[in-house]
Design a protein around this nucleic acid. Sequence first.
RNA 1: GCCGAGAUGGCGGAACUGGUAUACGCGCUGGUCUCAAAAACCAGUGAUCGCAAGAUCGUGAGGGUUCGAUUCCCUCUCUCGGCACCA
Length: 826
Amino acid sequence: MPYTTDEIERIEAKWQAYWHKHKTFHVQVDPTQNKYYVLEMFPYPSGKIHMGHVRNYTIADVIARFKLMQGFHVLHPIGFDAFGQPAENAAIKNKTDPAAWTYQCIDQMRAELKRMGFSYDWDRELATCDKDYYRWNQWIFLKMFERGLAYRKTSSVNWCPSCQTTLANEEVIQETCWRCQTPVAQKELEQWYLKITHYSEALLDDLKQLENWPARVIAMQENWIGKSYGVEIHFPVPKTKDILKVFTTRPDTIFGATYVVLAPDHPLVDQLIFGTPTEKSVREFIKKISTRPKSARLAGDFKKEGIFTGEFALNPVNQESIPIWIADYVLMEYGTGAIMAVPTHDERDFLFAREHQLPMRMVIQDPQNPKIKVEDLGAAYEGEGIQINSGAFTGLPNTEGKRKIAEWMEKEGMGRVTTHWRLRDWLISRQRYWGTPIPIIYCPACGTVPVPLDRLPVELPAHVTIIGEGGSPLNHVAAFVNTHCPKCGGPARRETDTMATFFDSSWYFLRFCSAHDSQEIFDRQEGAYWMTVDQYIGGIEHAILHLLYSRFFTKFFQDLGLVNFSEPFNRLLTQGMVLKDGEVMSKSRGNTVDPDSVIEKFGADTLRLFILFAAPPQDQLEWNEAAMEGAWRFLGRVHNLVEKKYRTPAKEHGPLLAPDQELERERNLAIKEVTEDITRNYKLNTAISRMMILTNKLEKYSSSSEAEGVHQSLVNAAIRTLVILLAPFVPHLCEELWEKMGEPPSISKTPWPTVDEKALSTEHAQIVVQVNGKLRGKIQVISNLPEEELRMAVFADEKIRTHLDGKSIAKFIVVPNKLVNIVTNH
RNA sequence: GCCGAGAUGGCGGAACUGGUAUACGCGCUGGUCUCAAAAACCAGUGAUCGCAAGAUCGUGAGGGUUCGAUUCCCUCUCUCGGCACCA
């Protein structure tokens, strides 16, 4: 690069100031224009941006700038996901206020984002910790409460001993806390939940609409929601006169059920064993099981343990009396907490039955092994086959049996066809300070009372002493806790838990549509115009968490009549991680590269170019300082083109000769391919390589191009095109070069060039000649040459003739203007 | 176990709908410039054989379809990610 580091810094600052002053990226609703909403997952303001942010936001910025140049009305906002624990932890450590710490971090990060030259509409900046924002969190909560979608219940919850707070299921990753990796414990607590399961069916079904989402995100959400079709079968228990409900996805195996199993914490256990001779030993067994940590289950193939209760249940299909067991391999959290065991056709039941010498009966015949006897089974047969020993259903294929048996049982009242979901309701209470207060008041007389909508926001009190243990810090703020009941006016106390911060981020994309609206959650017209988000970009770590919650909120808003769509994000791109030395860059590994230090050395443009060129956006990207220099070198070459080869033409260009046509073709090819690469599947790396090719071509022309028979005006046009194409990627330098070329600013709003299809066609075509599929030569012919003449040209070629020597020709295959393959006999 | 993504030179990665495998960049080698170095520029760079022309091999492994396969089909191996005693 011919510029010095200082000059780069000056140029970048100059154009950042220009965009700021002219509000280049500010937009307002304009129904006459086509809108395009580009959004990246907004950052948590930790103080410094990291390479992951730089990558995420650079990709988004290219798309936003590209769409703007294409003439779209582009909304590209940014804000800060500002509530959350790091601020609280920093406050505890440094004895400061989380609010002060957060706003200071926001100032720093805003400056860094500006230094990268991102094309944000800064007028829409928001921070979720502002009361103008979080009052709408409270509003949403109350709307949910009204409709029974926000509720309080006592249950066993995930508890992070290090963060001293509860966690949602989605925040537990492999039995540890998503934030600090501490093993998660279980606690019995009364907490607030959002009824996300109300939308289970829609959340699953609507995934089908999301054609422009990565397959793996769809798959992960499908897994997480976890729908299984099956039958809830009712087993009468004669002793207690209870009905034991078990859930199965294999009703076709019901005739092979030889025992049933309850989870150790199943509610029926107590009545079953009460006062029986087995009571003591069963209780001891349950105690032993319950002290074992949940994480032990993850340790692969541990032995299934169980104990017989001494009682029996009746199989409703054949009135067989079968033993009721308790075992650790049945979980209370899933299904009904009880199963029917079919050892011959379920591997877990098989292992358990063999261990405890329980009876087995085959009911599905393995077509590969039809004569095998129960005694000889080495494993359960879980595949398809013909029903045997199955009463009236014997002889049917089990796929048919599955359906017919289910229908029959439902008709006879032996059970009901049903669906089970893995998805659980969302626990949102957090015993922490730095979050949105839950707008609920507990009155000794009236009970749980919502704060009236006109009294929002319930403000988070400032300057609270936070020690990080012993429940919510708000418990100790008398002025906050003590209040009056909105209903009866009597003394009452406020809820002191705050909301999980994923609540805040579940709807911020709507708030951006009218970020400073003081009357409504967002302006209906503005929301209708800008939504949905056309392009969303963020990390794969939110594949379930944030992306599932946002989908849930959108469906709720649709039910409220706030929006008329059911999915918020049309296209989703999950960018790959940034690695260094083969490992993910992270603070804990100590292998981070500070974007600021790179900007200081190379400037934002070079950093942007490197990060876009080194790998496709979806893939992992390995940090490579040497490749950074390659990006730097390329920008220098583009600069030199403008400096040395862009000049006033000596004369107007007349008719185009062959070299002119060649250059025009290259220019149009570059437009075509760069446009396609950006549009089709985000191939920003190959878009850049295409611009490098055009640069290489242009460098071939000497500084006196006229002497080579190329019109200077066409060289100028090609250079101008190159700078325009490059502008979304490297905006500062391109603005500068644009100005240098004498064009009026700003290149950011210069129309994207279109392809002249005529210029792409060529008079001559290079034909690859293969003999029996092997490359044997290349010939130049006139384009669209008739096959007869093409044959003659091919056979006239010396080299081809030697390869055909003495062979007779079986086939002559032609791919027009591209390839010929001559197939010989032998 | 189930689901998803992937495997191409020394490295990052190209190859549209089956048609010249390795574009573009990094690195490396040689050269120009220089007292020297850096920077910049020029040339070369898949492997093997060959002075050369060229030949043969080559996209994780093995089969198949085809005039022709990195691309389509079958079987398998490995890597990454998600879910998981889920009934």
